[in-house]
Design a protein around this nucleic acid. Structure first.
Length: 319
DNA sequence: GGCATTTGACCCAA
DNA sequence: TTGGGTCAAATGCC
């Protein structure tokens, strides 16, 4: 049976679709061999070996499918997996922007408050979701009428961990949020306050005020301010800036130079236009757990066993 | 008064 | 028929 780490690797590159196909093809070949073997009346030992190998192939293939399904989270509609609950009937709406889906799981410090991601949202509905203890809130961009912005988001508490919010962003912001942008996060404010204090005290031992990464050019989602990412150790790390910057020209894996020696899990699956993902983390953040929708599973970036070297420069990822 | 939120009703895909 | 998504009237807040 595959371990979780192995299953995670399956989703990435060579462990993904190709290997799934390989396993199925291999299983088929073995079944054909067994069929021929049965007709040839070979030894029971050989037949037993073949059946075990066939079962192993399908078990491995199924585990791949199962893990894809589990990571798809709220938006598993595009993944045809038998393990998906039967009550998930309706297809994802917003046909024009259906592929522009970003799903994240973040921890919220304030109950029932939608996360401040730098955009202004207006709540237009709330529904009790079957199988979940918490209702799902539906938000649309406040500039929907004024500027025709079709961006929406859904916020729901995780049923497994109520301290976590599952946020699904749909569509792209086409509006100009002049009143709220740029927004200074608590983290940014903190830096500013410290700098101000330093100025007032006349003590600026480390030179000029540190530049705060400006993510205001990002469209959606542009997570900032008080986003909290919770790791597997139940420790909440602050995430001052997590942005998915539209950049259709290249796919940049910002974590490829990070050393992996911990037991953390990271996954990011983003639509095509989010392929470049500069991610800003605090130096003391040792995990960001991002789970996103399956709209473009092939673009999944899966990294298991991640942690950050103390010497690692996060400024590399600033927007 | 204007704007945001709440909430029951309605629509629609499966 | 059911459940998720949206609408829109009612309500609350500033």
């Amino acid at each position: 049976m595959e371990t979780k780490q192995q299953s995670l690797k399956m989703m990435n590159g060579g462990w993904g679709r190709n290997n799934l196909m390989n396993e199925l093809v291999r299983g088929k070949g073995l079944a054909q061999q067994l069929k021929a073997d049965l007709f040839a009346a070979s030894s029971a030992e050989m037949q037993c070996l073949l059946t075990e190998r066939i079962l192993g192939c399908y078990e491995k293939a199924l585990s791949m499918l199962e893990y894809r399904g589990s990571f798809a989270g709220l938006s598993v509609d595009t993944v045809n997996v038998s393990s998906i609950p039967t009550y998930r009937k309706r297809k994802t709406p917003s046909p024009r922007l259906a592929d522009e889906v970003v799903q994240v799981v973040v921890a919220g410090s304030e109950l029932d408050s939608p996360l401040d991601d730098g955009h202004s949202w207006r709540k237009y509905g709330q529904k009790d979701i079957l199988g979940s203890n918490f209702p799902r809130g539906y938000y649309r961009c406040s500039n929907r009428h004024a500027q025709g912005c079709l961006a929406t988001k859904q916020v729901q508490r995780s049923k497994t961990d109520p301290t976590l919010f599952e946020v699904v962003y749909r569509g792209r912001h086409t509006c100009i949020q002049s009143s709220r942008s740029p927004v200074r996060s608590p983290w940014q404010k903190k830096i500013g306050a410290v700098s101000k204090d330093a100025e007032e005290n006349g003590s600026t031992p480390h030179g000029p005020t540190p530049e705060v990464p400006d993510c205001s050019m990002s469209t959606v989602p542009n997570f900032r301010s008080d986003l909290m990412i919770k790791n597997v150790d139940n420790k909440i790390d602050s995430l001052p800036c997590l942005s998915f910057t539209p950049s259709p020209m290249e796919f940049t894996n910002p974590f490829e130079d990070i050393s992996f020696f911990d037991s953390k899990v990271m996954e990011a699956s983003v639509p095509d236009y989010y392929l470049s993902m500069p991610v800003c983390l605090t130096p003391d953040s040792n995990l960001m757990e991002v789970v996103s929708g399956p709209a473009s599973v092939t673009n999944s970036l899966t990294i298991d066993k991640i942690s950050f070297d103390p010497e690692f420069s996060f400024e590399t990822f600033y927007c």
